[in-house]
Every structure is written in C-alpha cells, then in structure tokens.
C-alpha cells in the first residue's frame, strides 16, 4: 500500500504542500483564483522551528484510534484509507482527542477534516506530493 512519507531533511518549509492540499479540496481549476481569500485550512500542516521543518498529515494507521473511538461511525477505514463521512460527523472532536499525530483538525463546515490521500478529489497522486518542489513528501510503498 502506497502512503505519504515525509523526509524532513529535504523540507524547505515553503508551505506549498499546504496550498496544493487546500487547492485540491476546492475542485477548481485555477489555484490563484481558488485560494484568493488568502486564508487556507489544509489537511497537511508544516511544523517548523529553528530551521527544522516537516509536513504532518494522516498516517492512515492500520489500528486507527480515530476510527475505533468515533462516536458516530463517521470515520471508517476501507482499502487502508481512513475517510470522514461529513454527513455523519457531528464535530464532537473525539478523533482530535485520539489522534497521536495531531493530523485531524476542526473545520467550519460541521465536520472534521483530515488527509484522505486525495481519494475524493485529485485521484491517484496526492496533491501535496505532486506539488512538493523538493521531493520532501513522497507517495510510495515502504515496509
């Protein structure tokens, strides 16, 4: 199973992954137009401090605490990808309480948000990986 892996040695801290992620969610064609409001709420987030930076997004854990703890059944894992059913999520944030990576976040539209490997949008290659200019985020199979 291919997953998103992060190599902090190559991360430039440019935040482009965050912009590509937010752009992919909009489903629009023109990035500048889609993100013109300026404030973005991506599903991948850069942590940075003292010259070190790296991206964090859902690890799609095989034993997912978020799915097991979900009080409504909105979070499910199928074909090794964890997704949220927005209609069933009530934003209780039990998943935010549970995720050891801090990879699930609040949103303004009534459901939590997380990386779904672009299964619902771009399809195939995750947008953050495609957009990373320095190959610090890769989508590959690892043991």
């Amino acid at each position: 199973m291919k997953r998103v892996y992060v190599n902090e040695k190559w991360c430039l801290g440019c935040h482009l992954c965050e912009y590509y992620c937010a752009f992919a969610e909009t489903g629009e064609k023109d990035m500048a137009r889609a993100l013109r409001d300026g404030k973005i709420k991506p599903r991948i987030n850069i942590e940075e401090k003292d010259g070190v930076s790296f991206a964090v997004s859902c690890r799609h854990c095989p034993e997912p605490l978020c799915v097991k703890g979900c009080i409504t059944g909105a979070l499910t894992i199928a074909d090794e990808v964890i997704t949220v059913d927005d209609d069933r999520c009530v934003s209780c944030y039990t998943c935010i309480l549970s995720c050891p990576f801090g990879a699930i976040s609040t949103s303004d539209d009534g459901a939590v948000q997380k990386c779904e490997l672009c299964v619902k949008t771009a399809g195939g290659m995750p947008a953050c990986v495609k957009g990373c200019p320095n190959n610090a985020i890769v989508f590959e199979e690892r043991g």
């Binding site: 944030y93 998943c95 309480l97 990576f101 801090g102």
Partner: peptide, 8 residues
C-alpha cells in the same frame, strides 16, 4: 483543542 491527541 487542536492536536489534543498528542497530549493524550
């Protein structure tokens, strides 16, 4: 409450 799970 963002990233609370890291504390958990």
């Amino acid at each position: 409450v963002e990233k609370a799970g890291i504390y958990t």
